[in-house]
Simulated assay, not measured.
Amino acid sequence: MKPLPVITMALATSASAGPTYNRLETSFSWSQTKQLIAFGDSYTFIQGTAGHANYSFIGDALSPSFTPSDLLADRIVQNLTGTAEGGPNWVEFLTSCGVKTGLTNPRRCKRKQLWDLAFAGANTIEDANFTPLHHNHTLALEKQVQQFVNHGDPALRSTHTVKNKKDVLVAFWIGINDINDLSKLQRRNATFSLLYERVQRRQFELVRQVYDLGYRHFLFMNLPPLDRGPSPSVNASMVGEFNTILKAHADAFQQVTRDAEVLQFDVNAVLNRVLEGYEAYGFKNATGYCKAYDQPDILTDPGKYGCAPLPTYFWYNSGHLTSRTQEILTRELEKFLKGYV
């Protein structure tokens, strides 16, 4: 999706309003990173030729296994439904992998290789009495990590795609479905801390499994301002509580794994700032969305449906960001990562 010229200009004029990221002397170096491995939900999912249509890059819960040749033959698909944003998402912008329309070899990208295990609609835990699967083919984070341990990591190692795990950044961005689904378990204004604790305790058990494979650099991203979406099922207090518990567990994981690098990026703060001054970023609508977002010609003829161009909307639909919003987010994330030399 090509950015509108007015948006590009607006970003240039508002760049001084962004946060400053100090350069840190650590074992992690973004400039030396060669691969990004990502886990998560629809905010991170990318379509693959070997994936479940509209849900994954490779495999699903009904057929999670794959061979090294299957993985290396898989291609990133970029089109209107190639992500849940109507265009490239943050992992694609960050790696310059799969940004262009068509098919992309994840090993032949401009910046970094991209290996995406995220599954659209995923929760952290697969439990019918807690966070039930959205579909029988859904890979919850538990199963994404299992798929990686059993098939992904062996494939990347045996093909020498990953030669040194210190050159890899492993990203986890999940929780959107968790917080929304858990909001239905009790009164909206009740305390959800015990439920959120269970989610994060399990997430970091899974992170430990990836750590035990030899990966040492981890990125955690918190919840966006879901309370400011077009039809929110959660409030700001719930989002804040979820994010606070995530941070506590990420801090604790850093304490017990001193040889690991735990990076925490505050998505919520960045996007709240964008929403507060959305017009400076070229957005014209920060509360609603184009109801015809999924029509095949929406990118070329939005006026046909009474819509403005999609890049002028903050929200793509009731639960997702537009590709343009993810691009803005990624610029801030890249500044953050470049602080690590």
Rank of each mutant, 00 (worst) to 15 (best):
V210Q: 06
N150T: 07
T49I: 03
R188N: 10
P88Q: 03
L117F: 15
S16E: 11
L139Q: 05
H52S: 14
L156E: 00
N189R: 11
N129K: 06
E142H: 01
V270E: 12
N222E: 03
A280I: 03
H249L: 09
F57Y: 15
T83S: 04
V162D: 02
D294G: 02
L4N: 03
L333S: 09
T33W: 01
T322S: 11
T104E: 05
Q35S: 14
A252H: 03
V145Y: 05
K284D: 14
L62G: 09
N136D: 15
F253Q: 09
E241H: 07
L263C: 07
A38R: 01
I245W: 05
D127V: 11
V210E: 02
H160G: 09
L36I: 15
N180A: 13
P3W: 08
R331A: 12
T13S: 12
Y340A: 09
Y293E: 01
Q254P: 00
F265R: 01
Y293R: 05
E92Q: 15
L71H: 02
T83Y: 02
L337A: 02
Y340F: 15
F218W: 06
P5N: 12
I176K: 01
T191F: 07
S183G: 05
D251E: 10
T322Y: 07
H137E: 14
G306R: 00
S323K: 01
V77K: 03
S27L: 04
E261C: 08
W115C: 01
G51F: 08
D74C: 15
G82D: 10
D297C: 02
G86N: 04
D227S: 02
G306Q: 04
V274A: 09
L133P: 03
G51I: 07
F45Q: 14
M9Y: 14
K291V: 14
G288D: 15
V341N: 14
L71P: 07
W173Q: 11
H137D: 15
L310D: 03
S237M: 05
D294F: 02
W115S: 01
F66L: 07
R107M: 15
E85Q: 14
Q47H: 10
S193M: 02
T104H: 04
P311C: 03
G48E: 03
R23Y: 11
H134G: 10
T138G: 00
Q254C: 10
S183R: 01
R258W: 02
T124N: 00
N235K: 03
Y55R: 08
